[in-house]
Simulated scan of single mutants.
Amino acid sequence: MPGPKKLDPSSSPRALLGAELRYARERAGMTQEALGAPLFVSGAFIGQLEAGTRRMQREYAVKLDEILGTAGFFGRNCDAATKSKYPDHFAAAAEAEAIATAIKEYAPQLIPGLLQTRAYARAVFYAYQPTATDDVIDQLVEARLERAKLLSDPTTPLFWGVLDEATLRRQVGDTTVMAKALGHVADLMRRRRIIVQVLPFHAGAHAAMGGGLKLMSFSDAPPLAYLQGAGSGQLLDDPASVSQHELAYDLLGADALSPRESLALIEQLAEDYDHETQQP
């Protein structure tokens, strides 16, 4: 029987690596739980590696080669599967996001990356890195817009966002940038491509005061939660932790305006920004 082929980094390295792991595990007659035990990880973690929702770290790759007798395959190809154009703290979340069937995101300060326009994203990155060259900013913007192509499909993934009112009122770039940014969100809502609710200031204290939250669901793997801070992020797969953040998101939705009310507010603010742009 021919051995597994070397990964092509230009295709989907993580997905291919996961498929090879599933093949090798089943060939060895092992369950996910049995394979996870010597690595001190759960069977669910092995399932996430196989589904491509988790990165395979080198320490795991080497151990898997030993257990499954794969002659160094995972160790050799691990680097290809972990290369990313995203910052280290966000890379795993971005790659999981790309294969998610549903994404729920609470945005406390900025319009979510998947919904940003080019000009808005550029203003954000200049604020993050005020001394960066135009080439660096261009690369960051293009990577963000590439992520946004997820919404090019008319139905998948489901995107449901809860935007704090601050995301609408905090001026990123000039008023023209804001008018077009909010207009873009409103257009996606009107086309029924996304669901968005606005969490108004008068809602007061809420269940996600600590920062941004992203929940991701998959067709063949357990859900993940991603917590984002300033230049940092944490991807969680523990079922109890994920359930806790799912509840927090549900509570946010209960406190937020309805999608219809949210659309009206977003469009009104877009008009306000546009009106300011036209003032002499």
Rank of each mutant, 00 (worst) to 15 (best):
L151N: 07
L145Q: 07
K180V: 14
R147H: 03
L151A: 06
L163E: 11
P154S: 05
L151S: 07
A181N: 07
V162M: 05
L163S: 08
W160R: 11
D174T: 08
A148V: 09
T176E: 15
G183N: 03
V172C: 10
A166G: 13
K180I: 11
V185G: 03
R147W: 02
V162Q: 04
L182H: 04
A179V: 08
G183W: 01
H184W: 06
P154F: 01
K149Q: 14
L168C: 11
H184N: 13
A143K: 00
L188S: 04
D153R: 03
L188R: 12
L150E: 10
A166M: 10
A143R: 01
E146N: 04
L150H: 02
E142L: 00
R144W: 01
S152H: 12
L150A: 10
T167Q: 07
K180D: 15
K149T: 15
A179Q: 05
D174H: 06
L188W: 06
L150S: 09
E142C: 00
D164R: 01
R147C: 06
P154L: 01
T176R: 12
A166Q: 13
G183L: 04
R169P: 13
G161C: 07
V162L: 03
W160H: 15
A179K: 02
P154Q: 05
D153I: 00
G183M: 03
T176W: 04
D153P: 05
L182R: 02
S152W: 10
A166V: 15
G161Y: 01
T155G: 05
L163N: 07
P157Q: 03
F159S: 11
P157A: 06
T176P: 04
E142D: 13
T167W: 04
M189F: 01
A148E: 10
F159T: 13
G183E: 08
S152D: 15
F159Y: 14
L182M: 09
E165W: 00
E142T: 06
E165V: 07
Q171Y: 04
R144F: 01
E165K: 04
A181L: 06
H184C: 06
L188C: 03
L163P: 08
L188Y: 06
P157D: 09
L168D: 10
V172R: 08
E146S: 08
G173S: 12
A148W: 01
P157I: 05
T175Q: 08
V177A: 08
E142H: 01
K149D: 14
T155L: 05
R144S: 09
G161N: 05
E165S: 06
T175M: 09
D164L: 03
R170M: 13
L182K: 03
G161A: 14
E142M: 02
L145A: 02
D153F: 00
L145N: 02
T156V: 15
L168W: 06
P154W: 00
K149G: 10
R147D: 08
M178S: 10
G173N: 11
E146C: 01
W160I: 14
L163W: 11
